[in-house]
Structure formats: structure tokens, C-alpha cells
Amino acid sequence: METLSLTAIGLGIIVVGAAIGISRIGQSAMESMSRQPEISGKIQTAMIVAAALIEGVALFGIVVAWLA
């Protein structure tokens, strides 16, 4: 029970980190799209790639929590 709750707390911290990261990506992508709508396609691609990399870290956490 002890380890389970620690795992849950750790996962919570990871999710907070990933949420901050992805929200900052989304925020800055929206800002730059409104500044330069003509390259919004490129910004969107870069945004998805960066979000995927951050999401990867969060999923690493889930898998580690699974194994722990």
C-alpha cells in the first residue's frame, strides 16, 4: 500500500509537468499562429512533434509506475 501511494504521487507530479509543458507549447503555438497565420501549418507540425516528445516522457512515467 505504501509503494502504491508513492507511485501515485510520482505519477501525479509527472502529469503536472507534462501538462505545464504541453500547455506552454499550445500557448506559444497559438500566439505565433496569430502573429503569422500564413505559416500556421508548419507551426502546427512542430507543435505536434514537441507535444509528442513531452507526452513520451509522461508515458515513460506510466510504464515505470506499471512495472514498479
Partner: peptide, 13 residues
């Protein structure tokens, strides 16, 4: 490795 984990974890989740 990250590619592997990402697809696995997303779909399973």
C-alpha cells in the same frame, strides 16, 4: 525506445 513506448502506452491506455 521512445517511439516504442509512446505507441504501446497510448493505445493500451
Amino acid at each position: 525506445f521512445a517511439l516504442m513506448i509512446r505507441l504501446f502506452a497510448n493505445i493500451t491506455a
